[in-house]
Design a binder for these strands. Sequence first.
DNA 1: GAGCACTGC
Length: 712
Amino acid sequence: MWVPPKNPGSSSLPLADTIPSILRFGEGSGIPKLASATAPLGSAPRRAMLLAAPGPKRHTAPASSAGSSSGLDSQRRSLPIFQARGTLLGQLRSLDCAVLIGETGSGKTTQIPQYLYEGGIGRQGIVAVTQPRRVAAISLATRVSDEKKTELGKLVGYTVRFEDLTSEETKIKFLTDGMLLREAIGDPLMAKYSVVILDEAHERTIHTDVLFGVVKAAQKRRKELGKSPLKIIIMSATMDVDLFSQYFNGAPVLYLEGRQHPIQIFYAKQSQSDYLQAALVTVFQIHQEAPPPQDILVFLTGQEEIEAMTKTCRDIAKHLPDGCPQMVVMPLYASLPYSQQLRVFQTAPKGYRKVVLSTNIAETSITIAGIKYVVDTGMVKAKKYSPESGLEVLAVQRVSKAQAWQRAGRAGREDSGLCYRLYTEDEFEKFDKMTIPEIQRCNLAGVMLHLLALRIPNVLTFDFMSKPSPEALQAAVEQLALLGAVERKDDQLILTPLGRRMAAFPLEPKFSKTILMAPKFHCTEEILTIVSLLSVDSVLYNPPSRRDEVQAVRKKFISSEGDHITLLNIYRAFKNISGNREWCKENFVNSRNMMLVSDVRAQLRDICIKLSIPLESSRSDTGNIRRCLAHSLFMNTAELQADGTYATTDTHQLVAIHPSSVLFHCKPACVTYNELLHTNKCYMRDLCVVDADWLYDAAPEYFRRKLRAAKN
DNA sequence: GAGCACTGC
């Protein structure tokens, strides 16, 4: 058992030449919430009732017969939640809404849907359980169908984009929150569901936040219409209970004990001016003092930082003193090719310690077994949105307290763990309590379009749990008006027929509009490809170390007309050789994302057919494609100024061409772009060369208005 | 002149 340094200052680091300072840590005074199994929450609403479920404290390893039915049964019974089953069912039976707070490992997500089913609650309909991520929905459905000893897709099934494994028999259905939201367009009362469980509610994804309001409205409406009741259960891991409870008319909060292992927290004794340096020192300090099979997870902010740190760690690890364990260093971030991501799941060879340097992908999306130590820089790269400028700002910032606890929790998955925070306890106390929910950080055009499609009476006053600013709502509606999706009628905002068609696509409104414009320019096939490419992560893989190779190979696809046409060329080449992996590797194309593009394209094409949109190809005529883009992206344009810089056409914001664009070294007179992203500079991403005249043709009134505004 | 946190429909 590793013992925390009693006097950290005296522990000598054999790497003093490379790393000048030793970081001093003090043990946290406040007992971290995650380490406390009995009293997880300080401020429970008064109406709350406590469901203590003291399961076995000792972590029981999965039965060796895991998979066999008896093993699964005994595992189910050994879960902490099992002893609370009766009480829980009694409560849930009588409640319209409940908030369920369960620690990691309480088994709430797998067990509660089964308890409801077994207890005959809501048998007349389906029990829906939403998840923020696809993989979670799929693996939970698999697990629960195993426990019920049924075939996946029968009693228990799942629905995620591109995959629907449900049938007439399905009574317990796991789905992504986005999927349930999309289903609601055709069925705003959610008539086929008797219970909706919104899981991982504390993550506050934009979809969960919209669903809060949608299920609440559906429940109320069903009651008014005298239809069968809809039961709502909110499941969350952390402390936002007051907010959830208040929003759902004072719904009772039920607590479930979990099986999180204790985590010891250490804070930096002094404020750190350089968190990268501090992280480096801490990793090697731990490495020197801890026995080898215990792995380290370090939270950093981005790809570039992680790649640089990986290299530094590897260099230092080559020159470790005798007797020191060896080290394997692995980067982890979302744009890393899948095969490389998988490496973090391999156990390190004997005598080696695994050090994973990760973005916040390891906070929720990827769980790595065997992590004993977490090193938390306290920093995260996150997006903010300013509705006034329409600008998205991507910046490194402090994490919230909730996020810091989430990170710490990654050390206690299998056994007790330790978390080193590279900030002082005083600094921590100044962190925001919660991360600002996504719905308050985003462009809301898509959300507003969705709400309108759900026939919500007044979208500007929609009952959000955390209301976005009026400016953000107004900006979204204005954007929709510009796209021709909404109009005012008797002081009410309603969808135009075009808007209703736009809402049928699982896309940002401007991309839906682009598709709907395409028939006019006889290039729907090409636009479908381009929009698909733009709506998934980049298919281009750019390893910094092989930049020259990448450039040489990519040359053959590059179009002087911009990124859209270049991407189209790459997709066509990919399809011409019928899309094999080898080709992708040779051409630095991310094959996983490319496959996804194919799936997305097929889905969008199906929707076009349902909407009777003619599917034509413009073949080699790229002018029509660019005209089509100009007609739908006219509000996203910039013009070259006399001094060689670019200014946006509408607000004359100074912008630059993003270095990832094929037009980076070019100076076209007029371009449209997909989005502006503010990092060090205000960059335009994904550009297309257009003719200024086309823009005026596309929206004469818009530009006349802009011109008048400029004159005043 | 030089850069891209993370999900999801």
